[in-house]
Nucleic acid binder design. Structure first.
Lengths: 228, 228
DNA sequence: AGCTGTGAACCGTTTCACAGCC
DNA sequence: GGCTGTGAAACGGTTCACAGCT
């Protein structure tokens, strides 16, 4: 057979796909019908060639001389990302972060519906937060099976993250959005995306510190230019 | 002069730096004194060579035959990231997400201290959330100047994100952690890190969908192997 | 023997440039 | 004229392999 196992799409491409989607939805809201690769790239600080190459991984969506039709392209990207349907999602851990995520409207807007919350705190179990019922972790498998949930948002304390993650996998979860600042160790078949908020601030700190250094150096070299 | 303007560290390297730091802090807590590049890499699913090359951008931190001393390396990475000091931070937007972030303990642990919150809701202004005073957006410049704040966490509604971001820049902010799902348009001197939660779920959706496709294909090729 | 630091080879992504189409 | 889609070239990051240190 001539089958290539070359199914590997660069991670950077998939990230940009989401960004394109975000911009396209913006364009759609403002009534824009079509968009060129260059203009779409401009809004994100990348080149038109990059945009076109990214789409080329998945097919031909554009019209020479015209550009891309916003609505059509939006649908294609959703299909590629797998968000052209509604994903039921579970949220584990109803602490500060968990509760905020339960109230976050942005998930539903992109097709993710949080249908069940879980916590170990028996005071919370049985109640509802933001209209979402809170279950005991003991009922994980039962609830997830019944509601056909395969994606989970993990917002538990760092120390229990690995344990709970393993329970999720046993309960049939195949994708985890992990907010705990640890590297989860799970079977390869499980997809993991980590969001470490402190880490993001560290990246900011580095950028800022670096810019400061660059500016200092620029000043020094200016000075030596003025008085060599 | 022999000055290279080649100050550019790959973004991926800086991200891994934060991950190394996270693992090292874990090792330190468990009493580990030294660590080899291979073992450190293993915990993150990358090669030892990668680890060593990453550090090589910044200097020589290891000891041949021994590895790296966890505590020493931790300090070096903090110095590089600029988190070997305490950063005062402001948080803008005390909605669901903002309030959760005010209560997030992970920031302080890595050296980020949220000293002031801001909101437009006059009911909140004057109160405190998680012990942090809520100010009016009108007092932005005054408060930021007084508290010497240069970093901000932006957790306002999407529609006002760009406006508020511009106000932040005018008030002296040089780094923004942006939770609104939009591309901020700001002067180059301002560092921006975006966290788009729905986008992260989309990445998860893609991984999961892709895995499903791969498995289906594997099944098909198995079947044709069995009955060719 | 064990492990780092690093030049060199390798590989994948980005940019370029242009043929082809509207 | 404007824009896409795409080979080819250029670039940059990752992996390899080994000299050198402990």
């Amino acid at each position: 057979v001539n089958r290539k196992d070359d199914n590997q799409i660069p991670k950077a491409v998939v990230t940009r796909l989401s960004l394109y989607l975000r911009e396209l939805q913006q364009f759609l809201r403002s009534g824009q019908e079509t968009i060129s690769s260059n203009k779409l790239g401009r809004t994100l600080g990348i080149t038109g060639a990059q945009v076109r190459k990214d789409f080329a991984y998945f097919g031909q969506f554009g019209f020479p001389g015209i550009g891309y039709r916003c609505e059509h392209l939006t649908n294609e990207i959703k299909r590629i990302l797998g968000t052209n349907r509604i994903w039921p999602v579970a949220l584990i851990g109803c602490g500060n972060m968990g509760r905020a995520l339960l109230g976050y409207k942005g998930f539903a807007k992109q097709g993710f519906q949080v249908l069940a919350a879980f916590d170990t705190n028996s005071d919370l179990v049985g109640s509802g937060i933001e209209g979402i019922p809170v279950n005991s972790l003991d009922d994980l498998t039962a609830v997830l099976t019944m509601k056909k949930i395969q994606l989970a948002i993990l917002a538990v304390p760092t120390d229990s993250a690995q344990d709970v993650a393993e329970k999720l996998v046993k309960a049939g979860v195949i994708g985890i959005l992990n907010f705990a600042p640890v590297t989860l160790n799970l079977p390869n078949r499980v997809a993991i995306v980590g969001v470490d908020l402190a880490l993001e601030l560290e990246q900011l700190s580095f950028s800022v510190a670096k810019k400061a250094v660059n500016e200092r150096e620029r000043n020094l070299s200016n000075r030596s230019k003025n008085a060599p």
